[in-house]
Each structure stands twice: as structure tokens, then as C-alpha cells.
């Protein structure tokens, strides 16, 4: 019994230590941002890596998710005589939940893991130490660009994902329920509020910050052994997904009271 309590206590301490490290890294990143310590070139490179490179997989994910969701909604709506609201239902769900959440999960798997792997490799090969010997703070040079890229590009991807998902939904509704362009898209402008879209964007901003912070933290805190890079990469994805879901719940409650 005592050993079980000791194990539990150790895990709690480990968890607190982890969140302490994350908070410290986040705070140091914010300090650099407020001082304007932003490196232009790496930031643009990271925006390309997080945004442009993630676009194909985000597009595919959102297209098929929109199609599947539309298939179910169109079927149920026809039974209830509410076929005229299928487009709005798909758009509302995309903007509120599926767009930001699914985009974040995909970006976490693709870009969050890449951040952990890249920084972890740099740590193992002493490139992080080399930065410090050249009077460069690794947080400023490596974390700030990724933080900005995550914060800016995940919302953009989520918005693009919303549009692709709604369009995919139309294709499916047209094929299975014979819905027209007017019938599907016509229900969106009058029912979808701008706040719903904005709330989805706000969620995506937080998700982008979570991905960048966790990915960079796992990389910077990699132990100096090559197999640890793989473990850090896996942990980055797992922790990102867990925290994105938890944050999604909190943000949903706060944004849609």
C-alpha cells in the first residue's frame, strides 16, 4: 500500500515538474516575444514547415471528415424533414469543433513530432550547446519561431480545413441526397454566426501554441542519447494530442457558455 502511494506520489511530482518546465519555457518564449527578439528567417522557414507542408494532409483529413459527417447528417436530416439545414450543420460543426481540433491533431502528428525530432537531434549532437557558445539563446533562436509558426499557421490551416470540409460535405450530400449548391450552401450565411468561426480560430491559436511548446520542450529536454530522440518524438505527439483534447473541452466551455 505504501509503495503504491509512493509510486503515485512520484508520478504526481513528475507531472508537476513537467508542467513547471513547460511553463518556464512558455514564459521565456513570451519574454522574447515582448522584447521583439524575433529572428525573421527561421520564423518564415517554420511557418512554411508548419503551414505549407502540413496543408496537403490537413486538406485530405478535412475533406474526408466533412464527407463522412455530411453523409450522416444528410441521412438524418431527410428523415426529420430538415434537409435544408445540412450545409449549415456541417459548417457549424466544422467551424466549432472539427476544423480546429482535427487540424491541430494532424499538425501535432506532423509538425509537433518534427519539432521534437529536430531539436532533440540538435541537443544530442551539441548544436544547442554550440548556439549558446555563440551567445545565442536557444529559446530565442529555436522556440520563438516555432511558437509563432504554430500560433499563426494552425488557425490558417483550420480555416482552410473548414472550407475544404464543408465543400467535401457538399460533394457527399449531392451524391447521396441529391442536394443542390443553393440548397446546401444557402443555409450557411443566415445561420452560421461570425463568432462561431472566430471561436474556432481562437481555439486553433491555443492548439498551435500547445503543439509548438510541447514539441520544442520535448526536443530541448531530450537526454543525450540517440534513442532518446525517438522517445521524445513519440512523447511529443502523445502529450500534444492529450493536451489538445483537454484544452478543447476547457475552451469550448469558455467560448460557448
Amino acid at each position: 500500500m505504501l509503495s503504491a502511494i509512493a509510486v503515485l506520489g512520484a508520478q504526481v511530482l513528475k507531472g508537476l515538474e513537467y508542467f513547471g518546465e513547460l511553463s518556464e519555457l512558455h514564459l521565456r518564449t513570451l519574454v522574447h516575444l515582448t522584447r521583439g527578439n524575433v529572428e525573421y528567417r527561421p520564423t518564415v522557414e517554420q511557418m512554411s514547415s508548419v503551414g505549407v507542408s502540413s496543408l496537403p494532409i490537413v486538406a485530405v483529413t478535412m475533406l474526408f471528415s466533412g464527407m463522412v459527417f455530411s453523409y450522416h447528417v444528410a441521412d438524418q436530416a431527410s428523415l426529420l424533414g430538415a434537409s435544408g439545414y445540412v450545409g449549415w450543420a456541417v459548417a457549424e460543426t466544422m467551424a466549432r469543433e472539427l476544423g480546429p481540433a482535427l487540424t491541430a491533431i494532424v499538425v501535432a502528428a506532423r509538425a509537433g513530432s518534427a519539432m521534437a525530432a529536430e531539436l532533440g537531434t540538435m541537443k544530442v549532437t551539441e548544436q544547442i550547446d554550440a548556439l549558446r557558445t555563440m551567445a545565442t539563446d536557444p529559446v530565442q533562436y529555436l522556440v520563438v519561431p516555432r511558437y509563432l509558426a504554430g500560433m499563426m499557421m494552425v488557425p490558417v490551416l483550420a480555416l482552410i480545413g473548414d472550407v475544404i470540409g464543408v465543400t467535401g460535405g457538399f460533394v457527399m450530400a449531392n451524391l447521396t441526397a441529391g442536394m443542390t449548391v443553393d440548397g446546401y450552401f444557402g443555409s450557411i450565411p443566415g445561420n452560421l454566426e461570425i463568432w462561431t468561426v472566430a471561436a474556432g480560430v481562437i481555439k486553433a491559436i491555443f492548439f498551435g501554441i500547445i503543439i509548438a511548446t510541447i514539441g520544442c520542450h520535448q526536443g530541448l529536454y531530450t537526454e543525450k542519447a540517440s534513442e532518446e530522440v525517438g522517445r521524445a518524438t513519440t512523447r511529443a505527439v502523445v502529450y500534444c494530442i492529450m493536451l489538445i483534447y483537454a484544452a478543447n473541452l476547457v475552451l469550448t466551455v469558455l467560448l460557448f457558455p
Partner: peptide
């Protein structure tokens, strides 16, 4: 100068 050079890849 580091043992394995530590050049930025």
C-alpha cells in the same frame, strides 16, 4: 569547437 563539430545541419 565541439568534439563532433556541431555544425548546424
Amino acid at each position: 569547437c565541439f568534439q563532433y563539430s556541431a555544425l548546424f545541419d
